[in-house]
């Protein structure tokens, strides 16, 4: 069962990576990176399920928060403005 979950999530990651590599425009890559960040949170939840340790969810929370900040920075870059105005 766990193997099945892991294979499905890996397939999602490969779809995202396809879009990161082949995306025609910069916003496409940004979307794929954002989605990849959320999928990794799902991965860490599965890891917590396998091992029974709570610190995998710490990793998940920090990944979700930092990927949010990264996405905001990329979005501000796409708006064509400096990071600090």
């Amino acid at each position: 069962m766990i193997t099945f979950f892991t294979i499905m999530l890996s397939a999602t990651c490969f779809f995202c990576l396809f879009r990161v590599i082949g995306g025609p425009t910069p916003p496409d890559r940004t979307v794929a990176i954002d989605v990849l960040g959320i999928v990794v949170v799902g991965f860490s939840a599965i890891m917590a399920l396998i091992t029974g340790h709570d610190y995998f969810l710490n990793i998940g929370i920090s990944w979700a928060l930092l990927s949010f900040i990264g996405t905001m920075a990329l979005a501000k870059y796409l708006e064509g403005r400096g990071f600090d105005e």
């Binding site: 610190y55 710490n58 920090s62 928060l65 900040i69 905001m72 920075a73 600090d84 105005e85």
Partner: peptide, 24 residues
């Protein structure tokens, strides 16, 4: 738990970076 001073410091700095990005 995993983490420590460096990781915590990076996350706190990221919070202020988010404030810089979203407000000014």
């Amino acid at each position: 738990t995993p983490g420590g001073g460096f990781a915590g410091g990076v996350i706190i700095a990221a919070a202020f970076i988010l404030l810089t990005l979203s407000h000014s």
